[in-house]
Design a protein around this nucleic acid. Sequence first.
DNA 1: GTGAAAGCGCTAACAT
DNA 2: ATGTTAGCGCTTTCAC
Lengths: 342, 342
Amino acid sequence: MTATLINVAYLIKRPTILDVAARAGVSKSLVSLALNGSPKVSQERRTAILAAAAELGYRGNSLARLLVSNRTRVCGVIVGDFHNPFYADILDGIVSAATAADFRVLAGAGLHSQVVNTAEWLLEFRVEGLFLLGVSLENSELEALTATTPVTVVAAGSDALAQGADTVTNDDYLGARMAVEHLASLGHRHIAHMAAPHTPAGLIRQAGYIDAMSDLGLRKNAQVYDAGPSEEDGYETAKEMIPSIGGITALFVFNDFAAAGVFGAIKEAGLSIPDDLSIVGYDNAHLAGTRYMSLTTINQPQQSMGELAVHALLERLDGTRAYPKKYVIAPDLIVRQSTRKR
Amino acid sequence: MTATLINVAYLIKRPTILDVAARAGVSKSLVSLALNGSPKVSQERRTAILAAAAELGYRGNSLARLLVSNRTRVCGVIVGDFHNPFYADILDGIVSAATAADFRVLAGAGLHSQVVNTAEWLLEFRVEGLFLLGVSLENSELEALTATTPVTVVAAGSDALAQGADTVTNDDYLGARMAVEHLASLGHRHIAHMAAPHTPAGLIRQAGYIDAMSDLGLRKNAQVYDAGPSEEDGYETAKEMIPSIGGITALFVFNDFAAAGVFGAIKEAGLSIPDDLSIVGYDNAHLAGTRYMSLTTINQPQQSMGELAVHALLERLDGTRAYPKKYVIAPDLIVRQSTRKR
DNA sequence: GTGAAAGCGCTAACAT
DNA sequence: ATGTTAGCGCTTTCAC
């Protein structure tokens, strides 16, 4: 019997503000006022209204409310790859900053291929701004979005600016230089780079590597191995690299996933990190922090990036800034056990 | 100038169905019909209306639409820890199954402590059902939710059933048995267990371990180390365990994170996996699959769990089932390099 | 085929 | 302090 009741509850129309009004014996406006905590409701009525609402299990209808108020105080997020905790960290920053600004965060979860679709859908809920995390859109697609809503592209989209979106990225060039300089400071002269030349960030990090080597007078020792961003990429490329180890004493890898692949190949070859090869990664992924890998890496301050993204949105919303702006944030070096003096 | 225009666009009221009607020189009802593809609109008018809508950059207002139709075809998800890719995999399953059923998925991202709050907020958007991933609520809190909405608790909440929620979990008992049986089949007799006795799943897995050992006639060799679910837990406990290695030849660890901690401790001790100790984890976390760890583990079929969760919701929604139901799904063993014959 | 009109549940003037 | 009223943007009868 209980179960039947429960089931029926899903079908029965939910109580509305009118039902509450009737039960409390007042008008619906008063209910609205009371529910929104207006001071001009008598204590007596307020109590009665709140009681009635509770008895009825009344729950406000955002849809209706937002329809009239026309401000939602909701921002939408689309995460390109929510399997990657990296974006979760950024989302954390967004959520806390948004909450502080009295905004709610709605994440649209759609099929991977349907970013635009999901974005459009989110916009139909009248989110006041959109955050794209690690999502790269076609220029025309992005332009269509920015035409009607403030969009902030985080951790991706090097040329999003031209399409009217704000961007928040870490300084890949600087980060790469920091990695190289760290290795050089440990006495390494033969520092190679495992690159991801097919990604925008990969090209910038590679440029940082080259320039750092030049500035250190090590340009002639520079050596770039083309790989990619995945563990598989790192593993395969590292296997080819094995014979050169010894000549090469240190390696700066495009990111931590690829570095994990290098760890695997090195282990298989019976060599040791950092005894035979010092390694620096990038991104400070979760696995980099485990004691087993303990990978020295370049950390992107994701929390700050998320907060900055919210900041950018608020500027747009309150009219402080009308032009798209590029926010770049400095990364930092995290030294662990994968690098040592030579 | 362009920038100014763009900025203004955020402030100007969005075009409504009425604007489209005016521009196309028809009534708003006709616009609605045309937009929804009704067959009883003349070809001529339809074209005009669609053109007008395009020119105006018209975008429907879900809020208004849903307000009248009173069905949203949206389900809400709350992820306890979206940093854990484990839940992302489940979310994948939910998204694809929901999409197939013509449902959209909205993830409420709130502060960690505000699960109930976020849930309530999602409900104000009239989501038709709620998925809680890895979230454990107080009984009373959960009960309040299930009273008005179908709720499916995934990968958590052993006693959620009693509060009226559907549950989808993997069979922890079976998984633990599989782990032990795998080790026994490799010839191990002294198999220890590193447990997480403060978690519901931990207790079940421990029970599975004990029973499996008994059934194999190895009960006297059973040894349980109390740890916890984190890498830190695994590391600390493993350090205490080191002297016993040799006597113990195999270890079944509560989950992969803790197992990663064990890897770290073993490495520090100068020992080797699997030469000195065979290890089986649980959950098939991302790091378990890296070549560097290559951890044999018990995989929870997250994709299926997500799909099952959607299935459960649909049953509730279409009235097929009125009682809460417990769905349990069998895990599977993934053999990698961390276990070997002895 | 097409338009007029009545709400969906709520907020926000405006009255009282 | 409380009630009345007019919409918010849309769908959906119901006439024409």
